[in-house]
């Protein structure tokens, strides 16, 4: 069984997510990956036993819109992504502002451009 990772533009994520919410999907997880050209954020939604994977791509330094307005538990995932990957996420309902994880090295999974720029 091949899994489908549907790519959407990162400006379209909110409308995509709103649609899924209206169809009564639930949020399973959000995961960020540092890739060569920036970051990938993978959102997994589920309904019953089915799942939908939506993937967006962002460049280094670009801001991402929070989906916690539609899916309340997203605040935890988004704070984690902010703390570990250093991606700025706007409009999280419960924003820890970098206080969720206190790590020795700030944003350890950040893109190497960011790390070298420091």
């Amino acid at each position: 069984m091949e899994q489908e990772f549907r790519k959407v533009s990162h400006h379209a994520i909110l409308s995509e997510v709103q649609e899924l919410q209206e169809e009564h999907y639930r949020l399973i997880q959000i995961c960020a990956t540092t890739v060569q050209e920036g970051y990938e954020i993978l959102y997994t939604f589920g309904k019953g036993y089915d799942e939908v994977q939506v993937k967006i791509h962002t460049d280094v330094g670009e801001h991402v819109q929070s989906i916690s307005r539609f899916f309340p538990p997203a605040w935890l995932y988004e704070n984690e992504i902010h703390d570990l990957h250093g991606i700025e996420i706007d409009g999280i309902t419960l924003d820890f502002r970098g206080g969720l994880y206190r790590t020795k090295e700030k944003a350890p999974f950040a893109h190497k451009e960011v790390k070298e720029g420091k």
Partner: peptide, 16 residues
């Protein structure tokens, strides 16, 4: 590997 990520059950249960 490029990435290994685990979403664990307790993580999902913390908001609740």
């Amino acid at each position: 590997l490029e990435r290994m990520r685990v979403r664990t059950p307790t993580f999902a249960n913390i908001p609740a």
